[in-house]
Nucleic acid binder design. Structure first.
Lengths: 245, 245
DNA sequence: CGACTATTTGACGCCAGTCAACACCGGTGG
DNA sequence: CCACCGGTGTTGACTGGCGTCAAATAGTCG
């Protein structure tokens, strides 16, 4: 984790892919960031139900939104990568219905809610953009409902790989059909509604079929068209188009 | 469907459960409603990817957000009941990644996006409330990820019954542990990621166990504690608490 | 009455969960 | 230095939940 990068850089990149941002709006955003802190892998940043005072932008590392299920299982609802606001919705909701945890060592930037509130009072266009990003998360989560509800194990994992590749590529963390994927097979299982053992079986199949290899914290996609076809992947749900918002 | 009710009444009820609304804000909302129209069951109101010009408030009947899956299946991501905005997120996203269809005959109120935009320019508190309701939908959808990803057929259906009961109760359409549920078993399957046949088996089990009966378009809950326990249902995700927003 | 949809039930097969065993690794402590 | 350990990955055997196929019934609409 390089400490010298602009903590807001990747978020601004994601933002400018979708719309213009005036210098004043960028200043308003930067002024809303209070500090940057780090946590170790496994740390739970937000516990469901607790009162929130700030929102969390991922600078480096992976976070996850997850819920517990009876029997000790967990279900990851969304994996957050650098440039994502992990709990911007917490600004509006005040408490969360799910936990937020660090899947890897992370560096995060904190945005106090009172400063975000000032943005909603004085910057309507920037406010709509913040709203927009909470809705992208919702869209990613809807796509997960479809995948988990109606697809088998192999397409679920293939879909996760497609999704993470495009999201990471947007912020410069993936390219050449490979990216760092520092997740255990248990993590991937939690994200796809499968057991770690079955994730292992499916990764083996994808590897032996020459589609993709996930190993040693790295994902390599050998055959993107086939991976996309297995996943039945349509990137429309990522809303990467540019327009006035 | 009684034609004489206030089309915005149920939405205002849901809103005032969560926060105060000034008379000026109520007027701004009412002024943003253009017209009320009806559609028959099965009609697709919004096709994924088309440019949107207005948002849809459910006045009467049930809508659904859904996506198609290869092989002719569909996955319902959320069922919308009277008082819900079915595509308020479309105001910010401009197009949708999913379809919106009528599960029953419906009456809906249309809110042109240019009028909603005026609200975001001049009414920050009301804007945050609109944002809030798009996030409640996101929360309902997250809870579905957990249920579909990690729970078996019976708890999935039990959870749907718990969720719909509380949401309908809030707008006066459920009470005494019963409510109109004009869905086919195929619809329930699409909403829970199951086949209609297996829905039938599970409904039979719930009925014979004295937990709940779903029949002839009506749901009757015989044993709420047991249904809630089967569903592992925690209503926190509905954000029914009142506070300044 | 015929066509269609929705519901119900039984038989069968497969995908994925469960249980178990083993290999590998980095860290820890005797 | 090596034994030990917990976490992770890998594989095989078995089981069960749910999908698929099939067929019968009932209700509705034309």
């Amino acid at each position: 984790m390089a400490a010298d990068v602009d903590p807001l850089g990747r978020f601004l990149t994601r933002l400018r892919v979708r719309d213009d941002l005036s210098p004043r709006e960028e200043q308003a955003l930067r002024g809303a960031c209070e500090q940057v802190v780090e946590f170790r892998a496994g740390h739970r940043l937000v516990r469901a139900g607790t009162e929130l005072t700030h929102s969390t932008l991922v600078v480096d590392g992976f976070l996850s939104r997850y819920k517990d299920v009876a029997g000790g299982q967990r279900q990851i609802q969304e994996i957050h990568v650098p440039g994502d606001f992990a709990d911007l919705h917490g600004f509006v909701l005040k408490t969360l219905d799910h936990h937020i945890g660090a899947l890897t060592p992370v560096r995060i930037a904190l945005f106090p809610h009172d400063r975000l509130r000032l943005i909603t009072e004085g910057e309507p266009h920037l406010s709509r953009l913040l709203w927009f990003f909470t809705l992208i998360d919702a869209s990613i989560q809807r796509e997960k409902i479809r995948t988990v509800g109606r697809r088998n194990a192999e397409p679920r994992i293939a879909h996760l790989l497609c999704e993470l590749y495009l999201r990471l590529e947007l912020v410069g963390l993936a390219g050449g059909l490979r990216f760092a994927l520092p997740l255990t097979q248990a993590d991937i299982g939690d994200a796809t509604g499968l057991t770690a053992i079955h994730v292992n079986r499916m990764l083996k199949r994808l590897r032996e079929d020459g589609v993709a290899t996930v190993r040693d914290g790295e994902a390599v996609i050998h055959d993107w068209p086939r991976l996309q076809k297995i996943a039945e992947f349509d990137p429309a749900f990522l809303y990467r188009d540019r327009r006035p918002r």
